[in-house]
Amino acid sequence: MQADELIRKVVAFADDHGAGGDPFPVGAGGMTLVRQRRPTLIYPIVYQPIFCLVLQGEKQTYLGSNTVRFGAMQSLIVGLDLPAQARVVRASQAEPYVALAIPLDMALIRELALELDRPGKTSLAARAVASGRADAAIVDAMRRLFELAEMPEAGKVLLPLILREIHYWLLTAEHGAILRQISEQDSHAARIAKVIAGIRRNIAASLRVDDLAGEAGMSVSAFHAHFKDITGTSPLQFQKQLRLMEARRLLQAEKLSVSRAAFQVGYESATQFSREYARHFGLPPRADKANEPAQAAF
């Protein structure tokens, strides 16, 4: 099937099911789709490990000083949990932004890496978010995964095989360096991933970079440099962004008060929280509380 035919089928599915700018479940392997008919303003997002195949249109993701662009027939690999900002930059009624995505199974990535002598090219630096050309093999595998939504009986047998195939192609892709490095137990990326998991679990905890560096088994200077290379930001700025994103979820989805949300994510001063919240989101928390809950997107 050519890319144009896959785009037609995905757009038809979106039309039939009323899918729009928020991720819409397709029904196989956690696959979701997004169809956006116009460019968007920059919005905050917390990524989790995910693979996104862009079929049409173009998007940008911002991680600190790093900007990642990905457009038609390109794929995006996100190897870590991290806060970022994003926007759709190319979309229209005639040619909407269309993308398919699946969550990444990092345990499967590590399992596959053990079976490969040389998982893939290593010329690119390991960045938490990377884009690259989607070759025919990965497009075909995503097509077959998409079509399983209409073949539940076949899915019982084929779903794990297709997901395994997709993870293999990503692990060996040139822009899959972050996946290869995370799969190496003692790599810098694996150590940073471990620290990030701890930051997310204990989002309200006070952090000292010395302690984080010790947990990663690195000097403070090496830890700070590797953390920023991979995530695009410093450890403390990373935590601050996570805290603000979680506070926004607590305000909008769980309807907590501003002071309670601030305390729950680790702020001792509601005034400082409100100031940093407004700087990050463009609105003070009390005004932003009435908005619709932000959803993850790709």
Rank of each mutant, 00 (worst) to 15 (best):
A125I: 10
A125G: 10
A125C: 08
A125P: 14
A126P: 13
R127E: 13
R127T: 15
R127P: 01
A128I: 06
A128R: 10
A130L: 04
A130G: 02
G132V: 03
R133G: 04
A134M: 12
A134Y: 07
A134D: 09
D135E: 14
A137P: 06
A137I: 05
A137F: 10
A137W: 06
I138T: 11
D140H: 14
D140M: 07
D140T: 14
A141H: 11
M142N: 10
M142W: 04
M142P: 04
R143H: 13
R144N: 10
R144C: 08
R144F: 05
F146Q: 04
L148K: 03
E150W: 11
G155H: 04
K156I: 00
K156N: 01
K156L: 08
L159F: 09
L159N: 08
P160V: 11
P160Y: 12
L161W: 00
I162T: 07
R164H: 14
R164P: 05
E165I: 10
L170K: 11
L171F: 08
A173T: 05
A173Y: 00
E174G: 02
H175P: 09
G176T: 08
G176H: 12
G176M: 13
I178T: 05
I178D: 01
I178H: 03
L179I: 01
R180E: 10
I182Q: 13
I182F: 09
Q185S: 15
D186T: 14
S187G: 04
A189I: 09
A189K: 06
R191E: 08
A193C: 03
K194S: 14
V195W: 02
V195P: 02
V195R: 00
I196A: 00
I196G: 00
G198R: 05
G198Q: 00
R200A: 08
I203W: 05
I203S: 00
I203A: 00
A205C: 10
S206Q: 10
S206A: 13
L207Q: 03
V209Q: 03
D210T: 08
D211R: 07
A213S: 09
G214A: 02
G217Q: 04
S221D: 13
S221W: 09
A222C: 10
A222R: 15
F223K: 02
F223P: 01
H224A: 15
H224G: 14
H224Y: 14
A225C: 03
